[in-house]
Simulated scan of single mutants.
Amino acid sequence: MLRFFLSFLLCLVLSLRVGAEGGRPLELRVVVPDDAAPMAYREKSGHLTGFSVEIARALCNELQASCVFDVVAPGNLLEHLLQGKADIAASGVFETPEQRNRMLQATPYYRSFSLWLGQSDVPPGRRGLRVAVMYGSIQEDYARRQGWEIRSVRSSEELMRILVAGEAQAALVPMIGALQMQKNEAFRRLGLAPTVLRAPELGGDISFGISPLRPQLRTEINTALERIKRNGTYDRINSRFLPFRVS
């Protein structure tokens, strides 16, 4: 009996060592914003959830890894990856092409486009407009090249405040951001008309960012993403948070 017990302990120690040294992380540090509903936000209870957050949790389950979430401002997501403070950035916030080239990207997990929100007499073709955008986004980069006067903000709440206060004439936002703002009564009273902007640089596939210090994660995350799409987990999360299919 003692010999059997000692053999069991030896096997257990060896299996744990293989698991720790086999390349699969036991813990993944995931950075997300918490003011980007329905992608990433806190419920009234304080629980962190949203489409991107739950997709990340599903991927961690597939990888048999523990997710540790850290809330970070959208403009700081990339730096956390580059500095090794995070393994994954699970966010639908667009980065500029220059920023994307500095990080690794997993297979896209949804496709987005951009919306112009303005009164009918404030078309996007006019120059000199005061336009609200999210800091560090491709919408901001595009707006600057159009010659608009930019109002860069770091949260959807601040963007809505600027519009309601008349500090900006229009906003250029990702489709998900526009969905969230429509839930705000003061914003709806503005009567801003949404217009899809078809510029190629304002839409496209959205991927989780991966730290260049953990390149092996890309293959693992891509494989896990494919599995949750096949087993129905992805569709259930999509239906829970979004009124349309985004895959």
Rank of each mutant, 00 (worst) to 15 (best):
L81T: 08
V68E: 13
M103L: 15
A143P: 01
V71G: 02
A165L: 12
N238R: 03
T219K: 13
L78E: 08
L190R: 13
I206W: 10
R42W: 01
L81Y: 02
F244G: 08
E43V: 04
A193V: 15
L104W: 00
P174T: 06
L16P: 11
S52R: 09
M103Y: 04
V13I: 12
L78I: 09
A143H: 00
G166W: 12
A168K: 05
I228S: 09
L59N: 04
W116D: 00
I237T: 07
L59I: 08
F69Q: 09
E226D: 15
S120V: 13
G125K: 14
A171D: 05
A106P: 01
A165K: 11
R240L: 07
F187C: 07
T219C: 01
R144H: 07
M134Y: 04
T195I: 14
D70S: 13
L159M: 11
L6R: 12
R161G: 07
Q180K: 11
G92S: 07
R126M: 13
P97H: 11
R245D: 02
G128Q: 10
P215K: 03
G22R: 15
S152M: 07
P25N: 02
L190Y: 13
G125T: 14
M39Y: 08
S15Q: 15
V53A: 13
T49N: 12
L129H: 05
L197K: 09
S45L: 00
S207C: 06
L104N: 01
P212V: 10
G84N: 07
K44N: 06
I237L: 04
D205Q: 07
M103T: 10
S156W: 06
L26T: 07
R240Y: 09
R218Q: 05
S207V: 05
P215R: 08
V13N: 14
I55E: 05
A224T: 14
G204M: 03
R154H: 06
E43Q: 01
L190K: 12
A40D: 02
T195W: 12
Q146Y: 07
E79V: 00
Q180F: 00
P97G: 11
R29C: 07
I228T: 05
S155R: 12
L202C: 05
L48Q: 00
G23N: 08
S7T: 15
G23D: 09
P108Y: 14
R245E: 04
V53N: 08
G232N: 06
S155A: 10
C67I: 08
L48S: 04
V30T: 11
R227I: 14
L129V: 09
M103R: 15
G75N: 04
F5Y: 15
R151V: 10
T107K: 14
A58N: 03
D35C: 01
V68M: 08
Q216F: 06
F69S: 04
N61E: 09
I176P: 01
F51N: 06
Q182W: 14
Q182M: 08
D205V: 02
G128D: 09
G232D: 05
P97L: 11
N231Q: 05
A132E: 07
L77C: 04
V196F: 13
E157V: 13
Q139F: 01
Q169G: 01
T195Y: 11
P25E: 01
V93N: 02
F69A: 03
D141A: 14
E201F: 13
D34V: 07
Q139M: 06
R245P: 01
R127C: 06
F4H: 14
G19R: 08
Q64C: 05
M103F: 02
